[in-house]
């Protein structure tokens, strides 16, 4: 009886699933960027696009195994991305505060962008949504990796030991 950890680290031996996921993952990621970029005036935004981005990496973990997926998206990089997204969000908010407005008052960004108040608001919303998307993606992957490895942080050390 193989445990959950062994099943997750092994890659799937199913040709159909592996081929389809290899084919679909890039398009899923492009679609996620589309959802993030069109969050102003259509359904979607940072949260939904980030969840789709995270789901593409989770599909990679399911089909190609934990070891191969962690080579592309290590837990260290994931943690850095998770805090980078929060930093982008809070940074844009505090930048508006420094420029003399309220927190997340995008109109003040016009003083450094020089594109007009409406365009500055649009760009500010886009920046905030990129930050939200990055954080949501990293949080989704982090939760899934915790479930898949049983919360053990030793998986990545083993991989690095093997490569060294």
């Amino acid at each position: 009886m193989t445990g959950v950890n062994d099943m997750m680290t092994k890659q799937s031996d199913d040709v159909i699933v592996k081929t389809l996921s290899r084919l679909l993952i890039p398009f899923m990621q492009i679609y996620a960027l589309y959802v993030i970029a069109h969050g102003h005036y259509s359904p979607g935004g940072g949260f939904q696009g980030g969840v789709i981005l995270g789901a593409s990496i989770i599909l990679l973990v399911i089909t190609y195994g934990l070891d191969n997926a962690l080579r592309k998206m290590s837990e260290k990089l994931n943690t850095i991305l998770c805090s980078t997204g929060v930093f982008i969000y809070a940074g844009i908010g505090v930048l508006c505060l420094i420029l003399g407005g309220n927190f997340l008052d995008y109109a003040e960004l016009d003083q450094i962008l020089h594109v007009g108040i409406a365009q500055a608001r649009s760009l500010g919303i886009l920046g905030v949504e990129v930050g939200v998307g990055v954080t949501v993606m990293a949080a989704m992957i982090s939760i899934f990796l915790d479930i898949a490895t049983g919360g053990l942080p030793s998986k990545e050390k083993n991989i690095q030991g093997k490569r060294a």
């Binding site: 199913d14 159909i16 699933v17 389809l20 084919l23 679909l24």
Partner: peptide, 10 residues
């Protein structure tokens, strides 16, 4: 058309 049969198969 691509994803639904694959999910069913899996």
């Amino acid at each position: 058309f691509l994803a639904n049969p694959t999910a069913t198969h899996a």
